[in-house]
Design a protein around this nucleic acid. Structure first.
Lengths: 211, 211
DNA sequence: TATGCTCTCAGTCTATAGTCTGAGATATAA
DNA sequence: TTATATCTCAGACTATAGACTGAGAGCATA
């Protein structure tokens, strides 16, 4: 089989260099490009058409999630392996839903990463145990993200609450009446299954909905 | 001058490998040990007595902050360089206060990191521009952490607020009257310079006071 | 002893939050 | 067309939050 063409997208220079240097000892793998941001990475991948992409999630210009979506959409055969430090729900599931093929943590050894790359081209997924555990629990109890039920407007209101705005301030910011704000707030509280706006604010922060 | 002895503490295998492999090309630097957790790292450093330590902040067993404190306390001549992905206030200032010598981000190039190591042994600090900016703003307006003014009890109340508890619930949890809770809450709001409990909850979460 | 800080609590008052019911307008899908 | 969902707003009501003043007890320190 011919060499596996790989692109590395990570804003950490040492990570890129580390993987690249290590993979130089792997004959089957050839690093055909590197990028340090999501946007740049997606562009590069669409140009180079590699077999596998190692993708970080948190980067300056364009997240790995967005880049993964673009890549999977344009190049369905290209396997995107998420390689990141995070394994919380807010990062894992959006990445998998975006079409990531494997999900590795940076605590993995270089060997494991090389192995995951090889397996990817053979159609084998590699999911970190910690991440796999989260997937299992989600499978067992399809624990719906409550905020998925929120309408666009309700989500806007929730973000305002999360920023500590009062109803009056929200009404001024969104150019709607206080009565309307109260209606939205009530709906938000019910949908999130919380008792008051403070708990809603906590929810928004804990679920990473802020910013 | 003799070789610079370096220890790398980072739970990311690829980062350790990346730095190590790169530094092999640097004659002046010798990597005398690696560790993947704060506790292990501090032990290793106290044993090996290197000139410089590259230290990650977020790790499984023992944070880089604690490890840095131990190292600086025991080996004052050992320069600890923080090398991490974070540059928010909650991470930067505790690290500097713990005695970190330099503060680098993983987005730095391998060359910059090698340079920082060499500078450290010569007594030159290297502070990432983003981090330096934060230090400058703190210098200009010695922006006191408002919650430092809170009494023990007030901090407890704030944590409760941050968990979304109502005054009644707080009074039950802390075994005090509602009136007392209201007094504490009022004091908390004033000291944090916020208008209501929701903003206080947001503050607690943003400043990393929860948990 | 005097001073100051903390924690506790009361009373009073106002402002804000939140519930519930009802309803009109619009857009979209069956 | 009918149904469904969203966004908008009103009125009436209750509950909670928060401000302000005052005060006693305990504790540590100058």
């Amino acid at each position: 089989m011919s060499q596996i063409k790989l692109v590395i997208v990570d804003d950490h220079d040492v990570v890129r260099k580390g993987i690249k240097t290590y993979l130089m000892t792997e004959d089957e793998i050839e690093v055909v490009g590197e990028a340090s941001s999501g946007d740049e990475g997606a562009d590069l991948v669409l140009k180079e058409k590699p077999d596998v992409v190692l993708m970080d999630l948190i980067m300056d210009n364009g997240t790995g999630i967005e880049a993964t979506e673009r890549i999977v959409d344009q190049l369905p055969d290209c396997k995107v392996i998420i390689l990141t430090s995070y394994y919380d729900d807010e990062k894992v599931f959006p990445a998998l839903e975006a079409g990531a093929f494997s999900y590795m943590l940076k605590t993995s050894s270089a060997d494991e990463i090389a192995e995951a790359v090889k397996k990817a081209v053979n159609g084998e997924n590699v999911i970190e145990p910690k991440v796999a555990g989260k997937m299992m629990t989600r499978m067992r109890s399809p624990e719906k993200q409550l905020h998925e039920d929120l309408t666009q407007r309700e989500l806007e209101v929730l973000i305002c609450i999360g920023n500590g705005l009062t109803n009056t301030e929200i009404s001024e910011k969104l150019f709607i009446g206080i009565k309307t704000v109260k209606t939205h707030v009530s709906h938000v509280l019910h949908k999130l299954e919380v008792q008051d706006r403070t708990q809603a604010a906590v929810y928004a922060h804990q679920k990473g909905l802020m910013k």
